[in-house]
């Protein structure tokens, strides 16, 4: 009995030692008091939270996961845990600015945007900080010279009131994703419209067709909505497949360069006809011997 108790104690001891070691390994990331006390002068607004959400989607999701729970492409800190959220705004701001180990530094972002990201992280655990999102209607019209797309955003109810100052994103569809055109942020004007010029150097499909997509996304006031249009505004896709069907040294068996085929076959033919001449002579040799014995 005593033996078992002492073993239990030993196990507990080992556990304590090990767990303290684990704590030591993921040593606390110390932030100086002055940095931690830095005041976030940007209040939580739907607009800057949307900016934060955009940044999060671009730079943070890969590691921290779409739910920010640390389950992205690699194991990382959960940003929605109580431990994380306990920190001051200043501490979070400091950490994401400086980076540590696998966490890169985001100093390259504007200070304003980094605070917006902090705000977004707060909203993640406390969604009521911003009002609930509503549906809107997104229509597109196009005009030429210069080729441009106009997004028209209205309320989804029967009033069809144009909505101003709503950020619309413009994209061109590509093989593996959407390529942004226009600015990072394209807010609608008072009439609910925003226009973006489509650059004329974009390559479309073989007919020059481009699919232009407009989106309202990552917005806290409005639900996601998208709309697309296809126009023959692109450059025609030029392929060089024939380059890969030419006779080349790296070509397939049936694509050997002509000069090589000629050269190789001429040599083989020349040498082997001489060999066959010799073999033929052997037959003659035998014949010559037979005549003699007769």
């Amino acid at each position: 009995m005593q033996m078992r108790a002492s073993i239990n104690i030993l196990i507990i001891l080992v556990c304590i030692v090990f767990s303290s070691e684990i704590v030591a390994q993921t040593s606390p990331w110390l932030v100086s008091e002055s940095d931690a006390a830095k005041i976030n002068s940007f209040p939580v607004t739907p607009k800057n939270v949307a900016v934060g959400k955009n940044i999060f989607a671009q730079s943070c999701v890969s590691c921290h996961g779409s739910k920010a729970d640390g389950n992205g492409l690699m194991k990382s800190t959960s940003l929605i845990s109580a431990v994380f959220q306990k920190q001051t705004d200043g501490a979070i701001f400091y950490k994401l600015s400086i980076g540590k180990g696998q966490m890169p530094s985001f100093k390259s972002l504007k200070e304003e945007d980094r605070w917006a990201l902090v705000n977004y992280l707060r909203v993640l655990v406390n969604p009521t900080m911003v009002p609930a999102a509503v549906d809107v209607k997104l229509d597109i019209t196009t005009s030429e010279s210069p080729n441009s797309v106009t997004a028209f955003v209205t309320a989804s109810d029967s009033t069809k009131t144009p909505i101003a100052d709503i950020d619309v994103h413009f994209y061109v569809k590509r093989d593996f994703g959407m390529m942004r055109i226009g600015h990072a942020s394209n807010p609608t004007s008072a009439d609910g419209k925003v226009t973006v010029v489509v650059p004329d150097d974009i390559i479309g499909n073989s007919e020059g067709n481009l699919t232009i997509v407009t989106k309202i996304e990552n917005n806290f006031l409005y639900n996601d909505v998208e709309s697309s249009v296809t126009k023959q505004w692109g450059k025609q896709l030029a392929t060089y497949d024939e380059q890969f069907n030419q006779r080349e040294l790296w070509g397939a068996q049936d694509k050997a360069p002509i000069w090589l085929l000629l050269l190789a076959n001429a040599i083989i033919l020349g040498v082997w006809s001489a060999i066959f001449y010799v073999i033929f002579s052997l037959a003659k040799l035998k014949k010559a011997g037979k005549i003699f014995t007769k």
């Binding site: 001489a274 001449y277 010799v278 002579s281 052997l282 003659k284 040799l285 035998k286 010559a288 011997g289 037979k290 003699f292 014995t293």
Partner: peptide, 19 residues
């Protein structure tokens, strides 16, 4: 090869070896 050592055989053989 039915070698009898005739002059003709020598000639054929020599020519083949030279080739």
């Amino acid at each position: 090869m039915g070698w009898q050592g005739t002059d003709e055989q020598f000639k054929i053989l020599e020519r083949s070896i030279n080739v």
